[in-house]
């Protein structure tokens, strides 16, 4: 069965890729272990000398990723969240009725309905 073969092939290849990526990650952890040990002095650089815990000083890696993403797509997010998904019923109804009007226009124009 071809579908089963495709599923299995993809599963195996993705599994191998995941294993490779994980091995690479483990290797990088092992190599950089001596550098990445957190000392008191290293932590203090992030804060202005005040006494904070290591946990507070560290930036989560998710912030690094999503910040880049959010900055790249800032105009899109501004318009999507600020103008469309406002939570106000009137704005929602505006977009929904716009969709209805566009749908009807498409049907009239492409469908060739007279009237």
């Amino acid at each position: 069965m071809s579908l089963l073969m495709v599923v299995l092939e993809t599963a195996v290849s993705m599994f191998i890729v995941t294993l490779l990526a994980y091995g690479l990650y483990l290797y990088s952890v092992k190599v950089t272990k001596s550098f990445s040990r957190k000392t008191r002095e290293k932590v203090l650089i992030y804060a202005c000398g005040e006494d904070i815990t290591e946990k507070e000083a560290l930036l989560a890696d998710r912030h690094l990723f999503t910040t880049i993403w959010n900055e790249v797509f800032k105009p899109l997010y501004d318009s999507l969240r600020g103008k469309v998904h406002t939570g106000i019923l009137n704005d929602w109804f505006f977009w929904m009725f716009l969709a209805l009007i566009i749908a009807y226009t498409i049907i009239i124009v492409l469908g060739g309905v007279s009237g």
Binding site: R81, H85, T86, G87, I88, L89, N90
Partner: peptide, 10 residues
């Protein structure tokens, strides 16, 4: 007022 009763958005 639907413009004021908004806690869910985004």
């Amino acid at each position: 007022d639907v413009r004021k009763a908004v806690r869910l958005r985004g």
